[in-house]
Design a protein around this nucleic acid. Structure first.
Lengths: 335, 335
DNA sequence: TTGTATGCGTTATCAC
DNA sequence: GTGATAACGCATACAA
């Protein structure tokens, strides 16, 4: 049986109210009783029951992290940033995701908001609409949106358009004019923004956008990359529209799959065809040639997110802030 | 303001007790009031406050996952398995780790047990002693230990000794007699077990164990691998004790770093020196030659862990079970 | 079939 | 300074 305030009160000859005040360091308690109560608490190895405390104070000291799917390197790095800076802050983080639960993201939002387990949330998703996110505002649940800009909530996001622009401009400056681009049909990847950056660079250099140079992957995987690489090589052989460089906002694994397939088919990277990825996964450094890619500052985003949300929760700050991070272009050998 | 049982009761003209019984699908409620209450609950968009419910029932529908550090691919894959099969089971998972909190693992155990937030825990660590783990038993907190065998708690673990044995035997069968082994000083890696497997294979084939063939990494990283590779090459040049194969129970990244450095120094893999890793990280498939390695069935372990713990929590099962998984030897090109 | 009363462990508002 | 007492939202034993 867990030891409660009552146990301590009984043993100390005071009431639970007094014990509670001692435990919470409230003023107006005599030094002597304070010492006695504290000693007994330690002796009995007392831990406050956070559930009961939460009921009484309407504060749980818990932050929810809401994600579509935890099985993503992107999200894990952000989580790492969150946990890393949680430090002394006495908060517990609770992970919510839709995985395997057969519910929509909005259902999950409702659950998180109405269940009452958390004091605030960090929502990491680019696939929810403002209409859905509105729920947090409506129910006055402190919330930080990570991954895209929002007009109605605090948000932390990366300038992916700028990241793509930098990458593509780099390719153009190297002399490339036919630059293929790999997209993927995953809503929470901000893929449209990334394509915009690609177009920006083209426009700036007066290079026409050509839809034949857009390749679609079904997921960010090496097999998809290999498949697309073959498609490109075949197009090369039939002559026209031969890309001399590929930019893969769909992700690094696709880019890596392409590199490996290009090499297998006898092409030299980056001489015959340059490749640029997106994400900077660990394998990007391993592939030969090492992958030039775009990195998002995930740890920093997680760090900022947890700090912001705790501020919101504790200070009741109501202003809507948003913070943009720059994507970092990592130049290695593949381009 | 969140809607409570009281709100529904008021509107339905019954008491909170009745509403509670309806919500929880208790028997002996007339169909008519049931329907009416349910309709109003839906209309008001009622969600039970899980904190209050937890206090009343002493059940939180929450499982704690306790880890030393979430920033590990191993743990993330297990988490993925856990979340994946959580499915309809109406449980929330709460992540606890010691990262950046300046507390010991045992302090964390205490927090988890005494705070009362969770009904059961999955502890993923190989670095805690039985004496520390005893706490869960003592306080009757249902617990599954993942990563090593335990006599006092349910446990799920991988036969790492067998996995190492298989890998090293494979090298021996390929004709290798001087097999280097890379260790790392990280307690929660079960490194000793893995070394035992290495020794087992040696003993079986009557090959003497030689401590000069043991190399120590400081972490599982490419830079450590490169460093060790150079050490080995230098030893080669001075003549004696030249390993013709390397087994890296310290992890794949170290093995990959070695491969890249060996290649840079002009050695051919696996002809001049064979390399076998441990873990099967995504990059293992990317390096050239692709890394032969040992994989632990992480998803399956997570799956079993969550099923077991929910059973324990719900059925109050008291027997101590343990389940061993076999490690899988993945043969690629580096050996 | 439904209402009344009580408790879960804690905090908070009063008196004294 | 400290003790009663109510309240948080819900569940449940018992009474009606």
């Amino acid at each position: 049986m867990a030891v409660t305030l009552k146990d301590i009160a009984l043993k100390a000859g005071v009431t639970t109210a007094t014990v509670s005040m001692v435990i919470n360091n409230k003023p107006n308690i005599s030094e002597t009783t304070k010492k006695r109560v504290l000693a007994i608490a330690r002796e009995l190895n007392y831990y406050p029951n956070v559930i009961a405390r939460g009921l009484a104070t309407k504060r749980n000291n818990a932050i929810g992290v809401v994600v579509p799917n935890i099985a993503s390197g992107f999200i894990m790095r952000i989580m790492e940033g969150i946990k890393n800076t949680l430090r002394n802050a006495n908060y517990t983080v609770i992970l919510f995701d839709t995985i395997g639960q057969g519910i929509t993201e909005y259902n999950l939002f409702q659950k998180v908001v109405y269940e009452g387990r958390v004091d605030g949330v960090i929502v990491i998703t680019a696939s929810s609409s403002d209409a859905e996110l509105e729920l947090f505002k409506k129910e006055k649940m402190p919330c930080i949106l990570v991954a895209k800009h929002s007009a109605i909530l605090d948000s932390i996001y990366v300038n992916n358009r700028g990241g793509s622009y930098t990458a593509v401009k780099y390719l153009i400056d190297k002399g490339h004019r036919n630059i293929g681009v790999v997209t993927v049909n995953r809503k929470n990847l901000n893929i449209e923004e990334r394509l915009d950056g690609y177009r920006d660079a083209l426009v700036e250099k007066s290079i026409p956008f050509r839809s034949e140079l857009v390749y679609e992957a079904t997921s960010d995987s090496m097999t998809d990359g290999a498949h697309l690489a073959n498609k490109i090589i075949n197009a090369r052989q039939s002559g026209d529209n031969v890309p001399t460089a590929i930019f893969s906002p769909a992700g690094d694994m696709t880019a890596i799959g392409m590199i490996k397939e290009f090499k297998k088919r006898g092409l030299k990277i980056p001489e015959d065809i340059a490749v640029v990825g997106y994400d900077d996964v660990p394998a990007a450094e391993v592939v030969e040639p090492a992958l030039t890619t775009v990195r998002q500052p995930k740890l920093e985003m997680g760090d900022l997110a947890i700090n912001l949300i705790i501020d919101k929760v504790e200070k009741g700050d109501k202003t809507i802030e948003s913070r943009e991070f720059a994507a970092k272009f990592i130049i290695r050998e593949s381009a």
